[in-house]
Design a protein around this nucleic acid. Structure first.
Length: 423
RNA sequence: GGAGAGAUGCCGGAGUGGUCGAACGGGACGGUCUCGAAAACCGUUAUUCGCGCAAGUGGAUCGAGGGUUCGAAUCCCUCUCUCUCCGCCA
C-alpha cells in the first residue's frame, strides 16, 4: 500500500499519477489524509490521558509501599475517572485506524515514471521483438491437436478427474513439463538466484502481503476448513519469506527463484481464449522474486527483463516485450513488462511472463525493511517476474516446431528431455 | 487425533502483580590498547505511533487477540505456533 506521508507531501502528484492508471476515486486520497489527521488528534488525546494514568499508578504503588492506604485509595478514584474518559477515545481511535487501513488499501500503486499512458492492451508499447516467426507446413495444427496426436496432454481426462482447466500431462508430455521446470530453475540459479520450494497454500496474512487480498479474493481457491488460499503464483509465498523482517543493507539484493503449480479460478473467463493450454485453472510456473535497495529497483527491473529475454531466446521462440500502459497494469505494480510469444498455429501472441516492479507497495504491507547507512529503517523494493509460465510456452514449442514427421525441440532441452524431438 | 510442556530483545536465558523495555551471558558494532591482530577494558546495541524547530518528550509493544486490576511479561479466557510422549501416516 501507499505511504501516508508521501500522500500528504505529494497530494497533487499522487492524483495525477492515479489518473494515468485510470483510477477514478482520487477522493480516497483526501479521505486518507482526513482520517490520518483525525487519528493523530485522537492519539494525542489518548496519550496525554494515558500518561496521567500511568504516572498515578506508579504513585499508588509507592503509597502502598509506604503503607499510606488512604492516599492510595483517593488516587485510585482519580485514575478511575480518567480511565472512564479514555474508553470512548480509544474506541474512536481504533475505529479511525481501521477505516484508514481499509481506505488506503483501496488505492492502487502509482505508475512509475516510464509507464506509457493508455487505456487498453492496444495502448501497450512494444519495446522490442526478437526471434523469427516460423513458417509452418501446410498441414500444421494448433497445440491441442498436437497434444492429442502425440498423446502429450489429456484434457478430457482432466475433466473427469477434476474439471475443465485441469489437464493431465501424460508420458512425454509430463516429461516435457519436468524438463522445462528443471531447465528454467537451472537457468535462474546459474544467474545467482537462490532456489526455493515454497508451500502451495498460504494464510491470509501472506495473501494480503503481496496484494492478492483484498483485491483478488475471488480469483483464489480457498480452503475453508483451514483458511488457506491456494497460491495463484509462487510470488506470494516467496515474497512473504521476508515478511516482517528487518534486513541489513548488505543483505540486498535478495534474489529468489521457485517452481510451483499455480491455481487460479479465472472466474469470468470464457470463450475461445480458454481452448487448450491458453488458460488453465492449474498450471506450472517458475518465478523470480527480488528484494532490492529502493534506488536500484528500476535498474533491477531492466536486468530481470534481460534475464527472461535470454531465457526465451534460448528456446528459440519468437517474442515481443511490451511496456504496459497505465490502464492495463495490475493494481499493485508500478511498472510492468509483459513478454508474449508467438503461437504460430493460432496466429496470435500469448503472454508467458510478466515482470514487475512494485516499489514499496508490497513491502509496506509486509514490513520488509532494511537499516540504511544512517541507521534509519527504509522499505525495500520488491520485484517479480515469471521465468516462465509453462502452458503457453509448451503451446508455442509444439506449434512452432512441428514438422510433418514430429516436433523438434530446442537444443537447450535435449538433455533435460532425454530426446531431441517428439515423434 | 489424545496427553503434557512451552512461546521473553540478534541469540541463549532470568523474571509469577508495582519504579521492567525488561537482570545476566553471548554475539554484533564503536572506542582504548597494538606495527597489526587476539585478549583485556570502556561504551553502544529493539520496533512503532505521536508532540516538538530542536534538545527532548509522551503512548504502544515480552507469540496474537480479549479480560481482571489503580497497576500485567507475570493472573484469567480464546486463538496460533513449537516441543515431548502416544496414536496415525508418505
Amino acid at each position: 500500500m501507499l505511504q501516508v506521508p508521501f500522500l500528504r507531501q505529494h497530494t497533487a502528484l499522487v492524483k495525477e499519477r492515479l489518473a494515468i492508471k485510470l483510477f477514478k476515486e482520487t477522493g480516497l486520497v483526501d479521505e486518507v489524509l482526513a482520517l490520518d489527521d483525525e487519528r493523530k488528534k485522537l492519539q494525542l488525546e489518548f496519550d496525554t490521558t494515558q500518561s496521567k494514568v500511568n504516572g498515578a499508578s506508579k504513585e499508588i504503588g509507592q503509597l502502598m509501599a509506604k503503607g499510606q492506604k488512604a492516599e492510595a485509595e483517593s488516587k485510585k478514584q482519580e485514575v478511575a475517572a480518567w480511565k472512564l474518559s479514555l474508553e470512548p477515545i480509544s474506541q474512536q481511535l481504533a475505529g479511525v485506524e481501521k477505516k484508514l487501513e481499509e481506505t488506503i488499501v483501496k488505492l492502487p500503486n502509482l505508475p512509475g515514471p516510464a509507464v506509457p499512458p493508455g487505456k487498453t492492451p492496444e495502448d501497450n508499447v512494444i519495446v522490442r521483438e526478437g526471434g523469427n516467426k516460423p513458417t509452418l507446413h501446410a498441414n500444421a495444427v494448433p497445440h491441442w491437436d498436437l497434444a492429442k496426436k502425440y498423446r502429450l496432454i489429456d484434457f478430457e481426462l482432466g475433466n473427469k478427474i477434476t474439471g475443465s482447466g485441469f489437464p493431465v500431462y501424460t508420458g512425454r508430455g509430463a516429461r516435457l513439463q519436468r524438463a522445462l521446470i528443471q531447465y528454467f530453475l537451472d537457468f535462474n540459479t546459474g544467474a545467482g538466484y537462490t532456489e526455493f520450494l515454497p508451500p502451495f497454500m498460504v494464510n491470509e496474512a501472506s495473501a494480503f502481503g503481496t496484494g492478492q487480498l483484498p483485491d483478488k479474493e475471488g480469483q483464489m481457491y480457498f480452503v475453508t476448513e483451514d483458511k488457506f488460499y491456494l497460491i495463484p503464483t509462487s510470488e506470494v509465498p516467496v515474497t512473504n519469506i521476508y515478511r516482517d523482517e528487518l534486513l541489513k543493507e548488505s543483505d540486498l539484493p535478495i534474489r529468489m527463484t521457485a517452481y510451483s503449480p499455480c491455481f487460479r479460478r479465472e472466474a469470468g473467463s470464457y470463450g475461445k481464449d480458454v481452448r487448450g493450454l491458453n488458460r488453465l485453472h492449474q498450471f506450472e510456473k517458475v518465478e523470480l522474486v527480488q528484494l532490492v535497495h529502493p534506488e536500484k529497483s528500476y535498474e533491477t527491473l531492466e536486468e530481470m527483463v534481460s534475464h527472461v529475454e535470454r531465457l526465451i531466446q534460448s528456446l528459440g521462440l519468437s517474442y515481443r516485450i511490451l511496456n504496459l500502459c497505465g490502464g492495463d497494469m495490475s493494481f499493485t505494480s508500478a511498472q510492468t513488462y509483459d513478454f508474449e510469444v508467438y503461437s504460430a498455429a493460432q496466429q496470435k501472441w500469448l503472454e508467458v511472463s510478466s515482470v514487475s516492479n512494485f516499489e514499496a507497495y508490497q513491502t509496506n504491507r509486509m514490513k520488509i525493511r532494511f537499516k540504511d547507512a544512517q541507521g534509519r529503517n527504509q522499505l525495500v523494493h520488491s520485484l517479480n517476474g515469471s521465468s516462465l509460465a509453462l502452458p503457453r510456452i509448451v503451446a508455442c514449442l509444439l506449434e512452432n516446431n512441428q514438422t510433418e514427421s514430429g516436433i523438434e525441440l530446442p537444443a537447450v532441452l535435449h538433455s533435460y528431455f532425454g530426446s531431441k524431438n517428439i515423434q
